[in-house]
């Protein structure tokens, strides 16, 4: 019997890890949304057994020979069992086929390097070629510094791919989860037809700590949360993780 329990970082209540897993890392007491791995997210969103992974096996090189990057990559691959910070492919959501890419924050902070950019671009291209709705779930600290300007160019790469997709009439739905920042928000994650965010997710371009250090401003309570972004007109809807699949299914009913 698996009786390991942990304490909720937010409300302090004890939670059985089994219960937390069954609720896709949402606290049963206070509904706090913990980060969710890409494989678990795919289970949450897609019809059982429908996911077909695409473009696996792409591995980051070390284009700049950046000291320490190789080791970080090896460690992240070992720890997560993933090739990089995104898992992508096609699958069914409520019986409707979609192209999907899901980011995983555990892999070097979900940072976007060449592999993340390439897999996101290819997912967009699969959606375009096969006339499918596009769903991208983001979780990212921003650009992957170890790849220098190559990581910056991923903003351009994903944007050109997306600019072709949006000429068609298939929907692009972006889901922002905790945390989504930097190069990912400044490119594909915000350029969607509909932007959904999870409750409490921190979303922005520059992080709060950097802003405080740069401007010495005191930031308001709830700064850069999903709710803050919705109130500032940047996010369409805030949807509880356990209601997300149903919510997207409803949306696809209108636009797909």
């Amino acid at each position: 019997m698996d009786a390991v329990f942990t304490k909720c970082e937010r409300c302090g209540q004890p939670i059985y890890e089994k219960d937390l897993g069954a609720r896709f890392n949402v606290c049963p007491h206070c509904e706090f949304h913990y980060p969710l791995s890409a494989p678990a997210r795919l289970r949450l969103l897609l019809d059982r057994g429908s996911f077909e992974e695409r473009d696996s096996g792409l591995l980051a090189g070390d284009p700049l020979g950046f000291d320490g990057y190789e080791e970080r990559l090896k460690k992240a691959r070992r720890r997560t069992g993933l090739d990089d910070a995104v898992v992508s492919g096609v699958g069914d959501l409520g019986g409707r086929r979609v192209a999907i890419a899901v980011m995983d924050f555990r892999f070097i902070g979900g940072s976007m390097g060449s592999v993340v950019g390439e897999k996101v671009a290819r997912t967009i291209e699969h959606a375009y070629a096969e006339e499918l709705p596009l769903l991208i779930v983001s979780a990212s600290g921003g650009a992957r510094m170890f790849e220098g300007v190559y990581s910056l160019m991923q903003l351009a790469k994903t944007s050109v791919a997306l600019s072709r997709y949006v000429e068609g009439s298939w929907p692009y739905i972006s889901v922002l989860t905790d945390p989504t920042f930097g190069g990912v928000t400044a490119s594909f994650a915000t350029a969607a037809d509909v932007v959904i965010a999870e409750p409490g997710a921190r979303i922005g371009f520059a992080g709060a700590r950097v802003i405080e250090q740069t401007t010495r401003e005191r930031l308001p309570e709830g700064f850069q949360t999903a709710e803050f972004q919705r109130d500032h007109g940047m996010v369409d809807r805030i949807v509880h993780r356990l209601a997300l699949r149903g919510d997207i299914e409803r949306l696809l009913g209108f636009v797909a």
Binding site: T185, A206, V210, T215, F223, H232
Partner: peptide, 11 residues
């Protein structure tokens, strides 16, 4: 990196 730039959605 400023509060208002974030409030008005620079990303």
């Amino acid at each position: 990196a400023g509060r208002q730039a974030e409030e008005r959605g620079q990303a």
